[in-house]
Nucleic acid binder design. Sequence first.
DNA 1: GAAAACATGTTGCATTTGCAACTAAATAAT
DNA 2: ATTATTTAGTTGCAAATGCAACATGTTTTC
Lengths: 211, 211
Amino acid sequence: MEVKSIFEGISDEDVNRMLKCFEARKMTFKKDRTIVTNIINVKMIGIILSGSANMVRYDYNGNRNIIEKLEENSVFGEVFSRLGSDISVVATSDCEVLFIEYEHIIKRCKKGCSYHSMLTDNVLKLLSQKIVYLNERLEVLSKRTIRDKLLSYFELLASSSPKRTFTIPFSYTDLADYLSVDRSAMMREIKNLKDDLVIKTNGRRITLISY
Amino acid sequence: MEVKSIFEGISDEDVNRMLKCFEARKMTFKKDRTIVTNIINVKMIGIILSGSANMVRYDYNGNRNIIEKLEENSVFGEVFSRLGSDISVVATSDCEVLFIEYEHIIKRCKKGCSYHSMLTDNVLKLLSQKIVYLNERLEVLSKRTIRDKLLSYFELLASSSPKRTFTIPFSYTDLADYLSVDRSAMMREIKNLKDDLVIKTNGRRITLISY
DNA sequence: GAAAACATGTTGCATTTGCAACTAAATAAT
DNA sequence: ATTATTTAGTTGCAAATGCAACATGTTTTC
């Protein structure tokens, strides 16, 4: 059920044919380079082919918010994410990105190519996944205290490990920006959680003891 | 571009044919009745045909969070919203709801009916809209102070009115739950915004003076 | 139209949070 | 290998927030 890429299940030849037809452009970015900024208003979507990136926004206080962590095969774009309001996507490692115009993807072509309908299905599933992800994020951010934000985020990460142990995919500095809280206040709360024996930590490796 | 309903652009006869084929069920709910709760794990989607509803969650502190306000033609369901984690949908007025199994919608039928591909396109656009909505909500909730949450939410509402005047679609009590903040603290902050001449209010009608 | 239920508005106070300013540890750069 | 730079970990303090407990106003309900 999980869709890895929007091209999942489509033969390499067909993918290449599509990419040509869509005038897709592949670009490479070095670590820490900005992949897109609010300047673009063309309805493009980007697909991370390799590497990783963060979608970030700086508010007028200068606080950075990490909106989303983009891994391999992640899709981003104005259509999906309301880019434009000072959002940018920054490479967190060297990466390759494919750009396609959104219209090409959703507009079923007149010829009714078989692969095109497969593509639509994949996009549908990707969008569903993105919605699930966004809802998880909303659930975390809707918690009123830092402690509860941490716990609900940790619960999410722990739920896929039977031992309830996981590695946070961020530095603690980045985690604070992801949870939209002050870093020092977050560190204080993590200390409290350790003192209360709710979590054990070893660097970025965390075990949820009880909830 | 805006899709009103997933059946937009499909003739009434075709819609009726589909509904039969999909074994869609129409149900009516009185105001304040629960439409769905976490119990369901069937992959159903619901469409509000008339009336309105709130998607809500109560956390373990007893705080209510309004996750989403559902109006006519809104779509909800596990696929879209990660229902299941104690989320329920409650009617805020008498309403009619149509239930369809999600699989029926995304699975392109073998016959390749013309309307089915139209339906897929509509769902695609609806999902995109939902993502935009979720991102707007994330932008609001990621603000660190109540003042900034209010301002960014008000900005969103004001942006569609040239006079920067709008009516909040909630009671103030509900607004606090929507912004995931304490009501009295929110009222205090609204008072501050008025004192600072940032907003003017007349009941639920608000004017953003400057930002 | 009286009573009940709910929404709005307000306040004091304890708690949580953000901010600023540090030190120490770990990574990256030259 | 030594020096920068970034990350992690702390702390005091002011500001923001949540909580509880009210008063008042408005809408429903019977």
